Computed example of a mutant assay.
Amino acid sequence: MKRRFVTLDVFTTRRHAGNPLAVVLEAGGLDTEAMQTIAREFNLSETVFILPPENPAHRASLRIFTPGGELPFAGHPTVGTAVWLALHDDAAGSLPEMLVLEEKVGPVSCAVEVKGSHAGHAVFTLPRLPERLGEAPAIAALAAATGLAESDIGFDHHVPALYSAGVPFLFVPVATREAVARAKPQAAEWQAAIGQGGAFLYTRETAEPGHAYHARMFWPGTGIGEDPATGGASAAFAGVVMAYDRPGDGDHRFVIEQGYEMGRPSQITLEMSVRGGVLASARIGGSAVLVSEGVLL
């Protein structure tokens, strides 16, 4: 049967920037193998398949695939799909202020706002707060894996760390934006140090004023050489911010810029609520714009 799809650029307010996303709108009847095949055909960092929700109070159920496998949770698919659903519901005259998407990590609550006929904004609450995992690889191994010098890695109190808010990521602090720009995964050394995992390189030196961090994300093990914007990693990054920057009690907002070296500038908003010295909740927000519509034959 024919199945409609759309593509959106996510974590941007303009087309041909941000992170491209494919959304298959009628995924009923597709098994895992078929979804994986379609994701490989799109060859974007993620492809979403929309299914009816198990809970009728929720808006939809999502399955999320990279070209190399399925993810239980991801940020740019959540934001992009929420924006498309908001556009669809608004056109039907039934736009809710909040919608819930079922992902394998659990229900994800999204506040949505429509901005014209082809764009919108979504903010979702992390379904799982970040947790620290095991020990990060040694700095020497990370330098070899990323093509950097050992002196490039680390700044202030920041050191490499592993965190997950549903999907594990390795976070590598880099002293300067110039060093982030010249990072280049080295295949053998990457496999030895990092394996199939993704590495989020970040620095305080930003390309645009008012932003808090500049980042690049490499994840060759899932078929993603470099990702223009990684909401799932930004969600886990809240744990890094708490551990090393120690924001005080209150509400905090950080803008993470990513994808600039790829010519796909993206802005991801990380909101954190700190109570009693611990992270009480966190949210990821961003804009998305509709780019194309089509039919899978």
Rank of each mutant, 00 (worst) to 15 (best):
G239D: 02
H214R: 14
R246P: 01
R216C: 01
F218C: 02
A236Q: 05
A236M: 10
G232Y: 06
E257S: 06
G263L: 11
G225M: 13
R246S: 15
G221Q: 10
G239K: 02
Y244K: 06
Q258T: 06
A243G: 04
G259Q: 03
G248R: 12
P220L: 13
G231P: 05
P247K: 05
E261V: 13
S234W: 04
I256V: 15
S234E: 07
R253A: 14
D227V: 10
A238K: 01
G223V: 09
D249M: 00
P247W: 01
P228G: 09
G248Q: 13
M217L: 13
I224N: 15
A233T: 10
G231R: 03
G210L: 04
G250H: 00
G239V: 06
I224D: 06
F254K: 08
T222E: 14
D249N: 13
G210E: 03
G239L: 06
A236D: 06
G250V: 00
V240T: 13
G248L: 10
G221W: 09
P247M: 08
T230Q: 07
P228C: 07
T222P: 00
D227G: 11
A235P: 01
G259L: 05
M242R: 10
A229I: 01
Y213T: 03
H214L: 10
G259W: 07
A233F: 11
A229E: 00
M262W: 09
V240L: 08
R216I: 05
R216V: 08
F218L: 09
A235K: 00
A235E: 01
G210K: 01
G239H: 05
D245C: 09
R253S: 15
A236K: 05
P247V: 08
F218R: 05
F218Y: 15
I224H: 05
H214P: 02
Y260H: 14
V240Q: 02
R253G: 07
G221D: 10
M262G: 07
T222K: 15
D227F: 10
G239Q: 02
E226F: 09
D227I: 10
G248D: 12
G263M: 12
G263H: 11
G225K: 12
T222R: 15
W219G: 06
D251W: 00
P220K: 13
Y213V: 07
A243C: 07
G239Y: 03
A235T: 00
A243P: 05
I224F: 08
G263R: 11
A236S: 15
I224V: 14
V240K: 00
M217A: 08
G231W: 02
F218T: 08
Y213M: 11
G225P: 12
Y260F: 14
E261I: 08
V240S: 07
D251I: 03
A235C: 04
A235F: 00
P247Y: 05
Q258R: 04
G232Q: 07
G221H: 10
G231L: 04
T230L: 09
T222N: 15
H214F: 13
G210D: 03
P220T: 12
T230H: 06
A215R: 01
A238D: 03
D245R: 11
H214D: 07
D251M: 02
G239W: 01
P228L: 07
P228Y: 04
V255T: 14
F237I: 08
T230I: 09
W219I: 04
E257D: 05
G231E: 00
